[in-house]
Design a protein around this nucleic acid. Structure first.
Length: 481
RNA sequence: GGUGCCGUAGCCAAGUGGACUAAGGCGGGGGCCUGCAAAGCCCCUAUUCGUGGGUUCGAAUCCCACCGGCGCCUCCA
């Protein structure tokens, strides 16, 4: 079945068809590296990761670009404040971004361009826009003349945007715009408060690029023009993406991105996350509280990307539990399969049905909630089927379900993360645990249950959870003591 | 002022005109298993979809009004 995606440009769900057969080009707006990204930022990045993974699951080659914004008011101010260059300021935040990125199991994009490496090309684009009559210079700065771009504001549904009187409080009063709605392409003029951390030479004198320029330039530099998918958070629709379109299309005279995808924000305890109000969590904050990356991923990928997610700690707890159920299910299948085991034809049937419902859900504008539903329905029904068997199940039947699980996880990516989280157990600890279990087995043999329970208690103190199963005791480390 | 979204069980959340006698997760209740547990599994858990009208043979789904929550309108993912 073909994938259908909502396109902000047309305001409807439409069939997605890449420009080039079997190959999808996508540009995903990345973080501004002036600080550590929070989980709200990662909600968006994760939604894009799901899209990337699903496209690959369907057999497409994906070429993804994720920019790292290192030239912007916040990076400049932070660099000036600390007396360092932009590169010095952003290096640790870029490292932190990739650390969290990998911890949440996001697949790496093909390119991670930084604005500071593309200033020359940005200047080229501004020159093209000036030559084409889309931009004008005033006092060493260059502005985009939106009256020359008839389609301006279409993405945001603002074809006839009116600017409210007195609402343009940007601190840019010194700029000589002809029209208040025109936006800056090149910021010239004196800005002593910015020092020399972000000053480049240009045909209009020293200055720095406007923020929107980097994405127009870096996207087309790597993906050509037009390319297939451009995505980001909903807050970027206007003005950022609106201006990107005006720049790229004005400069090249052809369409920029064909399909626009915007991810709704994640709230924290019912309120918008905000750096300035210190109302946010980073991935690191959550890990310090003992959360598992796989559970964070499960929660951030639980809802539809065009629906707000409200992040709460109890919600993360729910996500952890549901993930444990999944892991338990997989363990049950792995432990209970044997080449000559009991035939359970129902398992492959259930697996096949679940997988097709799962795919149909994702085909429908990446309906993640429905896709999880298909997976958990399989869990319940397969568990019920396993209950009916009174011994090991034929391996080929169990494998049909395990394969379906693994296939879905190529997109969900939670099991693969969970598998990386298993705690290392030292040999000493392992020997001690095994000794305790042997003693306990002996006590139980002699029906000395109070001693057996005392040993179980001691193990629990050490963070070891013991479960008795028909095949003997099973233990796992629930926490490092 | 402009513009857009949302309101479904205790909580989270799909479904957006007829197969809905409304997915799925968490929680809760009951049962199975167990020396007892734990874990796990199974079953049950919304006569109803913010409120009031309307359209229709038929509405959670469409229209109107109202109530409540959220977003965007120049540099926040």
């Amino acid at each position: 079945m073909p994938l259908r995606l909502y396109n902000t440009l047309t305001r409807q769900v439409e069939a997605f068809e890449p420009l080039e057969d079997g190959r999808v080009t996508m540009y995903t707006c990345g973080p501004t590296v002036y600080d550590r990204a929070h989980i709200g930022n990662f909600r968006t990045f994760l939604a894009e990761d799901i899209l990337r993974r699903f496209l690959r699951w369907k057999g497409y080659e994906v070429v993804q670009v994720r920019n790292l914004t290192d030239v912007d008011d916040r990076t400049i101010h932070a660099a000036v404040q600390r007396g360092v260059s932009l590169r010095e300021l952003t290096a640790p935040f870029i490292d932190a971004f990739f650390e969290d990125h990998d911890r949440l199991g996001l697949q790496r994009a093909e390119y991670y361009p930084r604005a500071t490496d593309y200033v020359d090309r940005m200047i080229d684009m501004v020159e093209k826009l000036v030559d084409g009559g889309f931009a004008y210079e005033a006092d060493g700065s260059v502005y985009y003349d939106i009256s020359r771009f008839p389609d301006y504001g279409r993405l945001a549904g603002l074809e006839n945007i009116e600017v409210r009187e007195g609402e343009r409080e940007t601190g840019d009063a010194e700029y000589a715009r002809e029209d208040a709605r025109d936006f800056v392409l090149w910021k010239g003029g004196e800005r002593p408060e910015e020092g020399d951390v972000a000053v480049w030479d240009s045909p209009w004198g020293p200055g720095r690029p406007g923020w929107h320029l980097e994405c127009s330039v870096m996207a087309t530099a790597h993906l050509g023009q037009p390319f297939d998918i451009h995505s980001g958070g909903v807050d970027l629709i206007f003005p950022h993406h609106t201006n990107e379109i005006a720049q790229a299309e004005g400069a090249q005279g052809k369409p920029f991105a064909r399909h626009w995808i915007h991810v709704k924000h994640m709230m924290l305890d019912g309120r918008k996350m905000s750096k300035s109000e210190n109302h946010y969590f980073t991935v690191g904050d959550l890990l310090e509280k003992g959360s598992r990356p796989s559970a964070i991923r499960r929660l951030l990928a639980s809802g539809h990307y065009r629906t707000e997610i409200n992040f709460t700690l109890p919600g993360l707890e729910d996500a952890t539990r549901s993930l444990e159920r999944l892991l338990e299910f997989r363990r049950r299948l792995r432990d209970g399969r044997e080449p000559e085991g009991q035939a359970l034809d129902r398992l492959p049937q259930l697996a096949e049905r679940a997988l097709s419902e799962w795919e149909a859900a994702l085909d429908d504008d990446l309906n993640l909630a429905a896709a999880w539903g298909a997976l958990f329905t399989l869990v319940r029904e397969a568990n019920a089927a396993l209950d009916e068997a009174d011994g090991p199940v034929r391996a080929t039947d169990a494998d049909a379900v395990l394969d379906a699980l693994a296939s879905m996880d190529r997109v969900f990516g939670v099991l693969e993360l969970a598998d990386q989280e298993t705690t290392e157990v030292s040999d000493d600890l392992r020997r001690w645990i095994e000794q305790q279990l042997a003693d306990r087995a002996e006590a139980r043999q002699q029906k000395d249950f109070s001693r057996a329970d005392a040993i179980r208690e001691a193990l629990a103190e050490a963070g070891v959870e013991v479960e008795d199963t028909p095949a003997g005791p099973r233990w796992r480390l629930v926490r490092q003591s």
